[in-house]
Amino acid sequence: MQNRNLTADDHFKELAEAVVEMDEERAVAAAHASLESGIDAYDAIQQGLSAGMERAGQLFEEEEYFIPELLMCSDAMYAGLEVLKPHLKKTAGSRGTVVIGVIEGDTHDIGKNMVRIMFETGGFNVIDLGRDVPPQRFVDTAIDSNADIIALSTLMTTTMDGMGTVVRLLNEADIRQGIKVMVGGGPISPGFAKRIGADGYAVNAAEAVKVARELVAI
């Protein structure tokens, strides 16, 4: 690739395409190329890698891509990110901090990982507590990190109640106003979200980011 002949937009396009095409090596090469051309690392992440991941999210919603493709896209995105991150001059104006995890008793975390990726792509600072997380830990972490959002996931009907417990603990700690709770996962419905007093529900990872943006925009 002849770097000097490429415009910034060409670089962004190449980065985005590498992500959409699930090509880790191409993403790494494109990241190096954009740095060599003097492209700002922050712009390369936002307008290149993130744009690609957003496109991948769209393809997922359109059922062109499924979980395997989305995971491979995110692998490419992270590979490019590794190259660009050390060159960040300005820290991104984060949209907010999200504490995310799979509720205690459930070890299915593909869905949660997808949501985490989309949050990171969407400019959120994400604290991932992993899977099988006790309700109290969500609350403690959210307080310690001054988080804006707690995002809870479960695939199991057996563990849904843990989500309500998190909301209750937040209420008891009297910090409910500052922290929004959003929920998702197989057995979760908008009705359930409402019933336990959650602020938001998303049906999939792509929608989760939109919901989160709305929640912190208030």
Binding site: M22, P68, E69, L71, M72, D75, I110, N113
Partner: peptide
């Protein structure tokens, strides 16, 4: 592992 398996589907 589920996440490994779906990656392997492509890789």
């Amino acid at each position: 592992g589920a996440e490994n398996l779906v990656r392997l589907v492509i890789k």
